[in-house]
């Protein structure tokens, strides 16, 4: 892996991805490029099937693109084997999924401690980090509870604490609020935003929850595998940093094209 000082923490350069469905090949992403900055909550929004989750899985190293290059924290991920990608994810990334995916046998504290145990940390470090993460998401007092004793919002906060305790530079969230009620959803949104701002973490979130748009630093609106709008809700104008080379039927970009 080559390492350079990153201006953007995540970069995709002309990536393409297609899936086979029987005899039909479905092109999800075609020569797609995007760059994401650290310390921001970047939201990828769009309708179901537009390719936003595929984009997330490729940028996070969960899936390989058919072609193109992906750089994360200045490291080239394209072409790396699964072992190397696992090591990269262990060291640098956190994930929050729509389903909370918590082991029903473990307490909230143990859920958070579990991945830390594979990072080579001491027992005391693991315990301290786990408690700190649970406190940060506001459920430190619920550490001894198992998933069956927690509400949906609390479970998602445990899932966020599990990701946060790793102190990742990259945090990926896939529809983190869609299974939650309005209050819990708002809490999760605020947490993700705070993690980006307070920890300098690159938070890339995929969602179609309109509440998230208001809280995101940057929004990438996707449709049919291309980004048709890139803007900052807090700004009056749009900002550079991404583009798609897909010219087939895409709506005009508001961001710059490289």
């Amino acid at each position: 892996m080559s390492t350079t000082a990153p201006v953007f923490s995540l970069e995709a350069d002309s990536i393409s991805k297609s899936f086979e469905s029987g005899a039909v090949s479905i092109q999800v992403l075609r020569r797609f490029s995007v760059s994401v900055r650290p310390a921001e909550l970047t939201l990828v929004a769009g309708p179901s099937g537009c390719g936003k989750s595929t984009l997330l899985s490729i940028l996070s190293g969960l899936q390989a693109a058919d072609e193109g290059r992906v750089r994360a924290l200045g490291q080239e991920l394209s072409g790396e084997n699964s072992r190397t990608l696992e090591r990269f994810r262990l060291k640098h990334t956190g994930f929050v999924f729509q389903g909370f995916n918590l082991f029903s046998a473990l307490t909230a504290l143990e859920q958070v401690e579990l991945p830390l145990g594979y990072m080579g940390l001491s027992r005391a470090d693991i315990r301290q980090r786990a408690r700190q993460a649970l406190d940060e998401v506001g459920i430190g007092h619920r550490g001894s509870m198992r998933p069956a004793q927690l509400s949906g919002g609390e479970k998602q906060r445990v899932a966020i604490a599990r990701a946060l305790a790793k102190r990742p530079q990259l945090l990926f969230a896939d529809e983190p609020t869609s299974a939650l009620d309005a209050v819990s959803g708002q809490t999760v949104i605020d947490l993700l935003r705070r993690i980006a701002v307070d920890h300098g973490t690159t938070v890339l979130c995929v969602s179609h929850d309109p509440r998230l748009i208001q809280r995101a630093d940057r929004v990438l609106a996707m449709e049919d595998g291309v980004i048709n709008r890139d803007w900052r809700p807090g700004d009056t104008g749009s900002r550079p940093g991404m583009h798609s080379d897909d010219h087939t039927g895409a709506l005009p970009f508001q961001g710059d094209r490289r």
């Binding site: 696992e86 090591r87 262990l90 994930f95 999924f97 991945p115 990701a163």
Partner: peptide, 8 residues
Amino acid sequence: TLNALGVG
């Protein structure tokens, strides 16, 4: 999820 978090 554990694998996503980097557990091999």
